[in-house]
Design a binder for these strands. Structure first.
Lengths: 331, 331
DNA sequence: TTGTATGCGTTATCAC
DNA sequence: GTGATAACGCATACAA
């Protein structure tokens, strides 16, 4: 592997000093047309491009953003990653995809991101408790952090989320209107704040409607298989007369798994016997096999805002955006 | 944002030279126990960790690997990204997720990756024609490239893929055994080599069985919606008597869309009227709503091998691995 | 407009 | 075992 050409080499070839070479590659620098032409020619011949590593070291800014992800089971992550990377790249930045799990925990990852001098850290749908942060004793010196698509549990760390209160209100209104009165809620992993919040709103709004009893049960993970298993256990343990008439799941992937069990294995009709609601509007929700009623997050807007905060165009503060209820045949 | 502590500061605090500080953070360096203790103490107090950026500049190795992705519609990308990031991180590397699309093409991305001095570039399921590369005139000096989950179309760039020939042979054998004789193949975007190869094998193996006529039609993109649309057009334009009795789709997401159209909208029975086969074994394929026969790629092994090549443990060469046929109710 | 000196934080290599 | 010098490639500030 040949070494990259340096500014110094280009300078020699063009017969100027290396600083003139730098200027030719610095937009808005004062340099003579003639010099610039000579430099660019020599650069092209030598295949020179500025070394971003050295630039980062000198400018103290890497234009890299670390994106922490801990749940790869939700296919909804993919379109988010797509727009996120696209927007970042449009701003001259690039995403460092960091997998957070038991082998590479938050503290470790944050330390690593810090060592790499990333411009920002995006906690994308991951749970990050503040005790973890204070353990790190890194409050200052840490790159700016932002939470995407989940509530922030850390003081001073802004979050960009879909408005859970509004969403759940719309959902409960819709379900009430359709005549459902025996609601159930399936959560994924109860430790997560967003799960708790969605569930809490769900329970609260039903209470406002005069429905005090909401069955709550949880899947172990956020996967279709886990959703199916949780539904199976529930159906096995509950007499038909005692069952819920509508099941809201914390996200689509749980809902699809649950639906599959309800309809596919137990032969119950959706929505006649049990209606199902998801959250996210994953592409396959619209398929006729499922036709799942769900709630769509304003993905593009969320990403745009979080990037605005990273670039400094927007004030860093928690933003909550309205989403869209998508009513389909499952309710 | 406070500045990070430097080796120099720690050195002053510990009363040693900054080189001794470096040694304390270099595994296997020769340093006195006493000095090391003092340094680590001072480092902890000042919250010092080595600056990876400066290290990269000095060592000429960033431990960053660029991962190019151009298709975010296939949910199968997600588990691949999960194991990829996990394995990379286990090796002390980190993934740079780069979105290749019309706004940020391959040449641009490769240039960018090169400027960032990445240790390697993984073309993950993206089409990269060699003309593009030669346009760049970068043959030398470019970081080592590898293709994952697609055939390499570039001389000297190794690929790690699932054995398409074996896969298609197993699939065709299975279909033939089940009695299907009027096969069809749905491809996503015909320009891609892997699409062409899978299709070609499909056609060839049927020919070996004495079936010369394979209907081929293509969806515009790799999405459920595109698969559904392609199926819809086919069903509309083809008399029931003339239709295929089995439809193989280039990947699961197309197959799920097609199935949805065949069964959900047109009311045809799968597999009785038309059988369907996918490729990838995406999680929802196993759901009772679809129960799609498909072919699973040896994901972990593929990732492990490509990382072996990147780290130098394995010789960089094209590797083709056998996958697993998953037979379900759709055939 | 152009050239010079200095700094960014680390590593490699050599003296001591 | 420890300190010092040079180098990595570029950016900033200043002088010419």
């Amino acid at each position: 592997m040949r070494k990259r050409a340096t500014a110094r080499e280009v300078a020699d070839a063009a017969g100027v000093s290396k600083w003139t070479v730098i200027r030719a590659f610095t937009p808005g620098a004062s340099i003579a047309e003639e010099s610039k032409r000579k430099v660019l020619e020599a650069a092209a011949a030598l295949n020179y491009t500025p070394n971003l590593l050295a630039r980062s070291l000198a400018t103290n800014s890497t234009h890299q953003v670390a994106v922490f992800v801990d749940d790869f089971a939700n296919p909804q992550k993919l379109p988010f990653l797509e727009t996120l990377t696209e927007r970042l790249q449009a701003e001259g930045m690039v995403a460092l995809l960091i997998n957070i799990n038991t082998h590479f925990d938050h503290v470790h990852a944050l330390l690593h991101a810090d060592q790499r001098q990333v411009d920002a850290v995006i906690l994308f749908g991951t749970a990050f408790r503040s005790e973890t942060l204070s353990d790190l004793q890194l409050g200052r010196g840490t790159p700016p952090m932002f939470v995407l698509a989940r509530d922030s549990q850390i003081e001073g760390v802004p979050a960009v989320t879909c408005d859970a209160e509004l969403a759940l209100r719309e959902i409960v209104d819709h379900l009430f209107e359709r005549g459902y009165r025996r609601p159930g809620f399936m959560t994924g992993a109860t430790v997560l704040s967003t799960a708790l919040r969605r569930r809490q709103h769900f329970v609260d709004f039903w209470k406002e409607k005069g429905v005090d009893d909401v069955s709550v049960f949880s899947a172990e993970k956020y996967s279709a298989e886990a959703g199916a298993e949780a539904a199976r256990n529930y159906l096995k343990q509950t007499e038909p007369a005692d069952r819920v008439d509508v099941l809201m799941c914390e996200n689509d992937i749980l809902a699809l798994g649950a639906m599959d069990e309800i309809h596919g294995r137990f032969g119950l009709r959706v929505p006649h016997d049990i209606a199902v609601v998801g959250f996210d509007n994953y592409e396959l929700c619209g398929s006729s096999a499922y036709s799942l009623t769900t709630y769509e997050q304003p993905r593009d807007e969320m990403v745009q805002i979080i990037i605005g905060m990273i670039t400094g165009r927007l004030e860093p503060e928690t933003v909550t955006l309205p989403g869209t209820l998508i009513v389909r045949k499952s309710t």
